[in-house]
């Protein structure tokens, strides 16, 4: 197995529900070992796309290969190489964390130690708690535990940290970083741009069933080339210049202040700003197309 091999390859994927073109010609290539985040507004086609890749929904057209298999014809052997954390949580209300993790471990040919997994998702103190008594965030951790039990080569995470407090989110990121470090390919959908920026090697922005842009979080939508904002404190107020040459601007300021510049900050647009711009531009173009 080489790292250049593709874990997921999608060409011209289409899916309609009645008159709605939920997925409208999506192309996607995700390398093995990559962490790929799919971003987009609600109803953009994220979950439909991901659920087609997971083998839960049928496509209308398009070529797909997930770990070398067509997910339209899922086999048990293929399923044992994939981990899924669904967008919705729930079920198995009367069973405890430990009972569920141990039971699900029985489904996989090559499993992680259930105790280790329970500890890793931070549910050690809740192992004897029935899942109906878990908080939303704890239930989500249980979902993650069940998703990673079988040492998946490919892990799908559909909005995994919804309902997490910031601390739980950071702990979750560490867990995912660890899995990614070990070579697990990860497909993530999320509404949290900081989450995508932290975890993803590349992000794809999807709207109305189409991919608008795919790049690293640093370069998405020309982010790396965008002008920087240099700001500082002067005469009791905040001043700033927007420039393509922030270094030169700082040198001039340093010369003017003869040394330390009060309150100096250099910022480029955040991933969130770039994302909102991409979606905004798309919606504006869409409106002029179909008035």
């Amino acid at each position: 197995m080489t790292t250049t091999e593709l874990a997921i390859e999608v060409q011209d994927l289409h899916k309609r529900y009645g008159d709605t073109h939920a997925v409208d010609g999506v192309d996607l290539a995700v390398a093995r070992g990559e962490v790929f985040a799919l971003l987009g507004p609600n109803g953009a086609g994220k979950t439909t796309t991901v659920e087609i890749l997971e083998g839960f929904r049928h496509r209308d057209a398009g070529e797909i290969s997930v770990l070398g298999t067509d997910p339209g014809k899922p086999t048990g052997q293929w399923r044992s190489r994939i981990g899924i954390v669904l967008q919705t949580t729930g079920g198995h209300d009367e069973l405890t964390v430990e009972e569920l993790v141990r039971h699900f471990a029985g489904y996989y040919p090559d499993v992680r130690d259930p105790d280790e997994v329970i500890r890793a998702v931070g549910l050690d103190e809740k192992r004897r708690t029935r899942s109906r008594h878990l908080s939303g965030g704890q239930r989500r951790r249980l979902d993650v535990a069940l998703g990673i039990l079988g040492r998946p080569e490919l892990l799908f995470l559909d909005e995994p940290t919804t309902g997490f407090d910031p601390e739980a989110r950071h702990e979750f990121w560490e867990l995912i970083d660890g899995l990614a470090h070990g070579g697990t390919t990860i497909i993530l959908t999320t509404h949290y741009l900081d989450e995508a920026e932290h975890l993803a090697d590349r992000v794809g922005v999807i709207a109305a069933g189409r991919i608008l842009a795919v790049d690293t979080p640093e370069r998405l939508g020309g982010r790396a080339e965008s002008e920087a904002t240099v700001s500082w404190q002067e005469d009791g107020e905040r001043r700033h210049v927007v420039t393509g040459e922030p270094t030169a601007a700082v040198q001039q300021l340093a010369a003017r202040f003869r040394g330390e510049i009060p309150g100096l900050a250099i910022t480029r647009p955040s991933l969130e700003e770039i994302y909102l711009r991409l979606i905004g531009e798309y919606e504006a173009a869409d409106r002029t197309e179909q008035p």
């Binding site: 197995m1 070398g68 890793a120 739980a168 702990e171 867990l175 070990g182």
Partner: peptide, 18 residues
């Protein structure tokens, strides 16, 4: 979700599956 829990093992190969 502690980091000391060793979950970073390499995923199994596609060829030989138990």
């Amino acid at each position: 979700m502690t980091t000391d829990a060793r979950l970073t093992g390499t995923p199994k190969g596609a060829i030989r599956a138990p």
